[in-house]
Design a protein around this nucleic acid. Structure first.
Lengths: 188, 188
DNA sequence: CCTATTTTTTATCATTTGTTAAATAAAATG
DNA sequence: CATTTTATTTAACAAATGATAAAAAATAGG
């Protein structure tokens, strides 16, 4: 559980008591490659932290699936819409390898938020951090070319490139697989 | 200050004491059309709430400015990067009409967050809400055509269309002004 | 009300990306 | 190891958007 514990500290450092309380609400889950942990059709009742493995969020479209997020160890898997608003989310999330996750239920987390100031601030920091990441994604899509986005991915997440098939990467970058092949061919 | 008071309630309902404390930290600011309230070069020390008027966030690019956000009465103007991380933000924000704003300093707000549980949860809710909006923006850019994004804007924010010039709208939609003109011509 | 300036539209051509289909390469299965 | 399936690349054409320039329309200022 070290990786997840570190991830929690990284978001916002909790006093010992609250940290222990927080961790006590987690539950370990082992899932096999291909398991769909979060389902776009449902209101999800858990937030998952990745201890080991790799995950991929995607939306179903008329032309198959589009990947919108990749997560590795230390990443947090959740549907914002489900967790924040109790609505079915946009996306499903599956693991691409056998993975170890720790999960906490929305109910537990909401209760902790409402009773403990440090944990409320942890939740605030978590949302702020995710907001900055989402803003960054938005800016990249708006201001960078597909080629630049691909080069950024090589630079900042080389392990994803190695572990995930290119069709998923293409849709993550907002282009078709054919287009990604062209970009890769041009880069040689 | 009614509009802003309502906006605060809408994000998360505070007990009377905390609400009064929160409001007491605000300061009224009148700004003239064209004033740049938030500057991309600087670390901004205030969060602004719009009581009256209209605002536009933009980034400077090689080819002029690109609009990334519009705000009307009830909207909140801030640089996420400045407010969350104490770094210069991506964007500048200017008002497009003479406007009435209320502002609270980052320092005051951080202090309230660290001392008062309801206000910490208000801040969490605020970040969560902004996160959902940003995620929506991202999804729209990824999954919808420029034409659909334009039609959504007509439907959901007709007042912006009336009050803001089309060049700004085009860059907000992620297309050139020429391209927006084509979309408008095709819709006739 | 007229003129200068700004904004918006239209036209033309170039570039990028999408679509479809086929070929090649890689991976999985018996 | 051979065969089947899946993933990736390549090719040819279509569609959408960008770039540039010029025309038309709208707005602001004297």
């Amino acid at each position: 559980m070290t990786i997840i514990s570190n991830k929690i500290d990284e978001i916002f450092l909790l006093p010992t008591t609250e940290k222990a309380l927080f961790l006590s609400r987690f539950e370990r889950v082992e899932v096999q490659k291909g398991a769909v942990v979060i389902n776009a059709e449902k209101i999800e009742r858990y937030v998952y932290f990745i201890e080991k493995g790799i995950a991929r969020a995607f939306r179903e479209t008329d032309k198959g699936q589009t990947t919108i997020w990749f997560g590795e160890a230390g990443g947090v898997m959740l549907s914002f819409l489900s967790f924040f608003k109790n609505k079915p989310g946009y996306e499903s999330i599956e693991v691409l390898e056998d993975s170890t996750l720790y999960r906490i239920s929305s109910n537990h987390l909401q209760e902790l938020y409402s009773l403990h100031l440090p944990i409320a601030n942890w939740g605030r920091k978590f949302a702020e951090q995710e907001l900055l990441l989402t803003e960054q994604r938005f800016m990249d899509l708006q201001f960078k070319t597909a080629t630049e986005r691909y080069q950024d991915l090589i630079k900042h997440s080389p392990s994803i490139l190695q572990r995930v098939q290119l069709g998923h990467i293409a849709s993550y970058l907002g282009i078709t697989q054919v287009s990604l092949s062209r970009i890769r061919a041009a880069a040689k």
